[in-house]
């Protein structure tokens, strides 16, 4: 930080600009929550009030929860994101360790492949995977929702960058103490990489909790719907104008993420800072 001081009016301008940015970012969420509290006639009223004149929260939330099995969708979301994250860690940590710390023929090529994969959007390979899963008979299962994401090249890249910073001496010490390579991965590297794992976890959970594209393709069974599919289903099912319940459902769906973020905020910022430094 350089210690230049701005004049008072300049500082005011700076804060105004920041404030505008905040309002722009927050407005949709505020509207969402406010709308979820309003009764139907108020939502379509000509004049706009931010705060509801009459509280319609009970009926909106009741409808959101009963019109479709929203809690079931939330459970599906939790199962799918947790499974994806667990499998990703299971794959990423050893892969990143090998790429960062082991010397073997073809390591540079493999890491190059990881970097290339970072450039491929998953929408591009969604159809081939769909066809593959069709042949395997996996469509319309939890497996279909989870398996395509078990190998996260982003995660491998992130963990590798972190592992590069772990001193080689630590690994040699573990070898002398008699640990196997997998022992080193899980009892030395993984505990050292908790901040990176948490940071990656947030990226992963947010991405897959909110994912609409792949679940839309992969499952058709209502019992397997994830929360975003559920909201869409509610929208299509209702008259298409039931904004109150829709916003209530949306609020319910993002609430767990916001809560998780608030709880893990410090770790998250740590993780981002460190990736900024090392990456």
């Amino acid at each position: 930080m350089r210690g230049h001081r701005l004049t008072a009016p300049m500082r005011l301008v700076r804060h105004l600009v920041l404030l505008l940015g905040t309002v722009a970012m927050l407005a949709p969420f505020v509207l969402m929550v406010a709308t979820s509290f309003k009764p139907k006639e108020e939502i379509f009223a000509a004049e706009f009030h931010l705060l509801p004149q009459r509280l319609g929260a009970a009926e909106n939330y009741h409808e959101a929860l009963t019109q479709v099995p929203l809690l079931h969708f939330l459970l599906n979301g939790a199962i799918v994101t947790a499974a994806i994250f667990a499998l990703q860690v299971l794959v990423n940590v050893p892969a990143a360790y090998a790429l960062a710390k082991l010397r073997f023929r073809g390591r540079a090529t493999l890491f190059g492949a990881v970097l290339v994969c970072l450039l491929i959007p998953y929408q591009a390979i969604a159809l081939p995977i769909y066809i593959l899963f069709y042949w395997l008979g996996l469509l319309n299962t939890y497996a279909a929702l989870v398996l395509p994401f078990t190998i996260s090249v982003f995660g491998i890249f992130l963990m590798r960058q972190f592992f590069l910073g772990v001193p080689d001496d630590l690994i040699d010490a573990a070898r002398i103490d008699g640990m196997s390579e997998y022992g080193i991965v899980w009892s030395v590297m993984a505990p050292a990489a908790i901040p990176a794992i948490v940071a990656f976890g947030i990226f992963s959970v947010v991405a897959h909790w909110n994912d609409y594209f792949w679940p839309l393709i992969a499952v058709g069974d209502l019992g397997l719907y994830t929360p975003p599919l559920g909201i869409a289903h509610l929208k299509l099912n209702g008259e298409g104008t039931a904004y109150g319940p829709l916003m209530a459902a949306a609020t319910i769906v993002i609430a767990p993420l916001v809560l998780a973020f608030l709880l893990a905020q410090r770790r998250f910022v740590e993780g981002i800072t460190f990736t900024g430094l090392k990456g």
Binding site: D169, L170, D172, A173, I176, M179, V188
Partner: peptide, 17 residues
Amino acid sequence: PDRRDIAMVFQSYALYP
């Protein structure tokens, strides 16, 4: 290394953090 019955001390200490 673990079957050679030796121990090693490193410059960076290499303690498990």
